[in-house]
Structures are given as structure tokens and as C-alpha cells.
Amino acid sequence: MTQDDWKQRNDDIARLKQRLGDEDMAYQDISRESELLAACRRWPLLAESEGWSLQGDALNTQTDDKAQPV
């Protein structure tokens, strides 16, 4: 298997689209987005660079108990 395949093999959504023969299919990778939100909630530096204010809605409405620095 070539290196490109190697990378491709791990992109399940791309492979799904390819197998269904619909490369332009709209798909929203929501688990990725929510992980991104969680990351910003976990680390104030990330939140800041993303332009969230610490008192902003984003932090208050979606508190996350799993935020644990490792």
C-alpha cells in the first residue's frame, strides 16, 4: 500500500463518500467540532486565541466536567 492510501485509510468519512460514489456529499464532522469546543473549554490559552472572552456565553452555557489537564 502506498503512503497516500495509508493516510486515506484513516479518513473514514472520505472513504464513505468514495464507496458511495458521491465525493461531494455534505457531511458535518460533528464529533470533531465538539472535541474542538471541548479543547477550547479545557485550555484558557486556546480559548483566548480563538477570541472567546472568559466571561462569554460559550463558557458559561457549556460547562464541561471532563476538562482535565493530562
Binding site: D12, I13, R15, L16, R19, L20, S31, K66
Partner: peptide, 20 residues
């Protein structure tokens, strides 16, 4: 718990899993 969820997501729950 989080690792278990991630593990299932990396294996059983892959979108292209059962297509081929």
C-alpha cells in the same frame, strides 16, 4: 470511560466500516 468511547469510535463506529 473516555478512552472506551474513543476506542469504539476508532473501531466499531468508523463510518466506512462495513461497506467493503
Amino acid at each position: 470511560l473516555q478512552q472506551r468511547i474513543d476506542y469504539v469510535q476508532c473501531t466499531f463506529a468508523r463510518a466506512d466500516n462495513w461497506l467493503g
